[in-house]
Design a protein around this nucleic acid. Sequence first.
DNA 1: TACTTTCCCAACTAAAATAGTCAAGATTTC
DNA 2: GAAATCTTGACTATTTTAGTTGGGAAAGTA
Lengths: 161, 161
Amino acid sequence: MKLTTKGRYAVTAMLDLALHYGEGPITLADIAQRQGISLSYLEQLFSRLRRQSLVASVRGPGGGYSLGKEAREIFIGEVISAVDENMDTTKCHGAHNCQNNERCLTHDLWSDLSNQIYTYLNNISLQDLMDRKAVREVADRQEHGDVDASLLDQVGTPAGV
Amino acid sequence: MKLTTKGRYAVTAMLDLALHYGEGPITLADIAQRQGISLSYLEQLFSRLRRQSLVASVRGPGGGYSLGKEAREIFIGEVISAVDENMDTTKCHGAHNCQNNERCLTHDLWSDLSNQIYTYLNNISLQDLMDRKAVREVADRQEHGDVDASLLDQVGTPAGV
DNA sequence: TACTTTCCCAACTAAAATAGTCAAGATTTC
DNA sequence: GAAATCTTGACTATTTTAGTTGGGAAAGTA
């Protein structure tokens, strides 16, 4: 199973797009700055998101990205699938050849778990996230940039340290 | 989040122990052969399982490993936690400093997902797995070794190919 | 037209994690 | 004392992650 920074970045960036809906195309540079994600890395991710029609792009000055469909029609699972190849936890990716071409002892366990996670993430839309109070608070903070000055010198410190 | 071969191997090996309960200590060599896992790698995993008292060991000839408590008291989540350091999906591992020392946009999403997975895996015991029909079938197959001869030359082929 | 802004794309790379191997040793049984 | 088994730590190859680099193509603006 893969649920890494790649998927987190993709969902975060998509949520950023959703939160700025109505302001015209949003540039990756804006997202990169607001969400603290490398611009070049975002470009890679958006290349995949675009291929899945999850975002639409406009080139040139004033251009940028916007959601490919409505926020309530885009589900987290889709976004993660678009950038990470799979969210399957089985070794054989659904085939039943995990061990010597036969099903391994725990095949169904991982298969069930995958379904569980998949169902969970495919029932949460970007709109659902936007409706959450905590998300709106963070978005507000990012918007007005009223960051406590005492924290500014810690920018760039690895998370979790 | 980490749900990789390491965790899968650990659960599979523990389930093997559970299935052979009552036969005295089981050697890692047996498990390695039955489940197709490298012996040295199993040694690493069991070192951690033993530190968490999930297994008990007996040295010397006739020795091996047995479950540290009853199969119905050992939960999948425990086993995975013992070998993988964490199954958290948040970047900050529960702290709220994901972005510039503040909570990132999607913190709660990953936090909720982690709880979901954690709850799921901590409600399935080894005994539950043993009670599953599919598991018993695979165990039977492994026991009697009646492997289709046409498959034998495919042993060692990478899964999923 | 020239210039700038933006998306687009492919190749490269450093660091970390994964999935092991290898070598030595400690216990116990026979 | 020899063999079987666990125990430990260090080493290693491969893959993945999380980027960087460098070029381009399209579109708007002067």
